[in-house]
């Protein structure tokens, strides 16, 4: 079993996202470590892109802040390299295809392996286009995470069949960002997916608070929180470590089975 699937073995999983280079490279390292030691089970690191079409304003702005400091892929590999000296938490890169194509797929995945990246999420690479990177990723043992959306319907079997690591279930239509209410029938979709695979399911897009996380983890194995984490970083800038630790630990306690916290 790979490192990513392994974290789902014992309890409900909390995955948190931040954008590399927001507010700067050193702080990104610090915030990853802070979340890792306070309850995050897996961290998703966003590679900034000039035109992130899957992102809502919060993450768009975070990517804009990171790019204004000229962050590049080598800086991001350095972040991972440095984190790996202190933590073995699974790390996933979240990206759009263009920066990878430009850098070279072979070179990119080789670097991922060297610094200790475990997986990758590529927002604009659906199943139909995965041959773009799949052989490079496989060769380096980097897991390509499969996303399933509320509109996937008849596509669920084919998507699920080739998934690895975990299934990323997109909670809602639209882009990333905090939502007050999640209207998709997560329970039914999770049941459909569970019929086909034993892989764990984590739900992302729109989740920000304890009660949403508790509700969702009734049906699935984990939650992914992005924009809410980025909002904390946006608000507290260089001094977000403590707030992040507090936030992450609250959510983790709430979703841990047997926990008494509401």
């Amino acid at each position: 079993m790979n490192r990513i699937t392994e974290i789902f073995k014992n309890n409900k999983v909390l995955i948190t996202y931040l954008t590399a280079g927001d507010p700067d490279i050193l702080k990104t390292e610090e915030y990853i470590l802070s979340m890792a030691s306070n309850g995050s089970d897996l961290i998703e690191i966003g590679i900034p892109f000039s035109d992130p079409v899957s992102e809502g304003e919060t993450i768009q702005n975070a990517m804009g802040r990171a790019l204004s400091k000229n962050i590049n892929l080598d800086d991001i590999f350095n972040i991972v390299f440095n984190v790996r000296k202190k933590s073995d938490i699974p790390l996933i890169l979240m990206t759009y295809l263009n920066p990878l194509l430009f850098y070279g797929y072979g070179r990119f995945f080789k670097s991922c392996k060297e610094v200790g990246v475990n997986g990758i999420i590529i927002c604009d690479m659906p199943f139909e286009e995965q041959e773009e990177v799949k052989c490079f990723a496989d060769k380096c043992g980097i897991i390509v995470i499969t996303l399933i959306a509320p509109t996937s319907n008849e596509r669920i079997p084919i998507l699920t069949k080739q998934a690895e690591g975990f299934v990323y279930l997109v909670s809602s239509l639209g882009v990333t960002g905090v939502r007050n209410k999640i209207t998709t029938d997560i329970k039914t979709m999770a049941t459909e997916i569970k019929k086909i695979t034993n892989l764990p399911i984590a739900v992302g897009f729109g989740i920000s608070n304890v009660s949403q996380a508790k509700e969702i983890t009734k049906y699935v194995d984990g939650v992914i929180i992005g924009s809410a984490v980025v909002e904390i970083i946006e608000r507290y800038k260089d001094h977000a470590a403590f707030k992040l630790a507090e936030y992450v630990s609250d959510i983790k306690k709430a979703i841990t089975v047997g926990s008494k916290i509401l």
Binding site: V53, D124, E128, L147, I148, A149, T151, S152, R155, L173
Partner: peptide, 20 residues
Amino acid sequence: SNGKFGIYGGQYIPETLMHA
């Protein structure tokens, strides 16, 4: 087919839009 002109074209969009 996912619609290529030589090596160009394709369907590089998020899963949410694939059904449509």
